[in-house]
């Protein structure tokens, strides 16, 4: 109980229940299998990007280029002919490699060159976006149907998207029991203490970026498999969504405090909010407005709850 309150996951769980209840009321057959499967497939990339942001934030940094990174990877996938990499698996491998490279670049800039991550990743976001535009100036291009088939398929009855999310969470859970995972938290919590305890702050932060970007790569694959085309703006919304989800999930932006479960819950809340607004019949021009209001209330609620918990 104390652990729950401490990481501030409780209020976000409450929010989750509320939005799910709302959604279930508004969307016909919300709990029906087809729409549930559909929702999960749409949510998966959001969840992955939010988990990625969570690792990086826990280490005490931030990454504002995850969305642009998703776009760049998506555009690359839509440009490379599938025959050149030997099938859908080759394509996915390529995506993950690019993701790791992008993560390494961010990590090196932030750790070795010591630039503040807020500014550094804001800049690299522009670079990723520029490259994506150069690859695919107009939305278009085409991914092989085999990638889409893989994503909408099942593994022994379990839909692939669910499988991916479960895999990501498993990795996260293992990380939490692993030296590396705990060092990431320690470095985020107090870098001076970590250094004096003999931990290489530099290497740990770099590792956090790499782990995070592996998840970003997975997210880009999921999105590409859904749209089967390239769009240099496809990832735009993910950056700030991931930061908001991390905060809603009770992870401290100062680093060192929080759990992946918080990021998961935050991601689902934000994902479902879009759903709710869509099904509430709000005119499309006002949808963004209401989304903003909901996110703001969610954040306000979180902050109040955390204050209350801190006093108690």
């Amino acid at each position: 109980m104390r652990a729950l309150r401490y990481t501030g996951i409780l209020p976000s769980l409450l929010m989750l229940v509320v939005v799910i209840a709302l959604n279930a009321r508004l969307q016909p057959h919300f709990f029906g299998l087809p729409s549930l499967e559909d929702n999960i497939a749409t949510l998966t990339p959001t969840i992955l990007v939010c988990l990625a942001q969570a690792v990086i934030v826990l280490s005490g940094e931030l990454d504002l280029s995850v969305g642009a990174g998703v776009s760049l990877i998506n555009c690359l996938l839509a440009t490379v002919p599938i025959s050149a990499v030997g099938g859908p698996w080759g394509l996915m491998g390529l995506a993950l490699l690019l993701a790791l490279a992008l993560g390494a670049i961010n990590g090196v800039i932030v750790t070795i060159f010591g630039l503040p991550s807020l500014i550094a990743t804001f800049a690299t976001a522009a670079v990723w976006f520029g490259l994506a535009l150069a690859l695919i100036p107009q939305p278009g291009g085409e991914l092989d149907q085999s990638v889409g088939d893989l994503y909408s398929g099942t593994v022994s009855g379990v839909p692939v998207p669910l499988f991916i999310v479960a895999g990501a969470l498993l990795i996260w859970t293992l990380l939490g029991r692993h030296r590396l995972g705990r060092r990431i938290v320690a470095v985020g919590s107090n870098p001076a203490a970590a250094f004096q305890a003999g931990i290489s702050v530099l290497r740990v932060k770099l590792a956090a970026y790499l782990v995070g970007w592996l998840l970003v790569g997975l997210a880009a694959i999921a999105i590409s498999a859904q749209t089967l085309s390239g769009d240099a703006r496809v990832g735009d919304t993910y950056t700030l969504t991931s930061v908001a989800a991390v905060v809603i999930g009770g992870i401290s932006l100062a680093g060192g405090r929080g759990t992946p479960w918080g990021a998961l819950v935050g991601a689902i809340v934000l994902g479902i909010v879009s759903n709710v607004i869509y099904f509430a019949g709000i005119p499309s021009i006002w949808q963004e407005f209401f989304k903003g209001i909901v996110i703001m209330s969610a954040l306000g609620f979180m902050v109040l709850e955390q204050k209350r918990a801190a006093v108690a």
């Binding site: 705990r182 938290v185 919590s189 107090n190 001076a192 060192g256 405090r257």
Partner: peptide, 10 residues
């Protein structure tokens, strides 16, 4: 020089 968010044993 401790990590304030982590338990004593860690």
């Amino acid at each position: 020089s401790l990590a304030p968010d982590m338990p004593v044993w860690e």
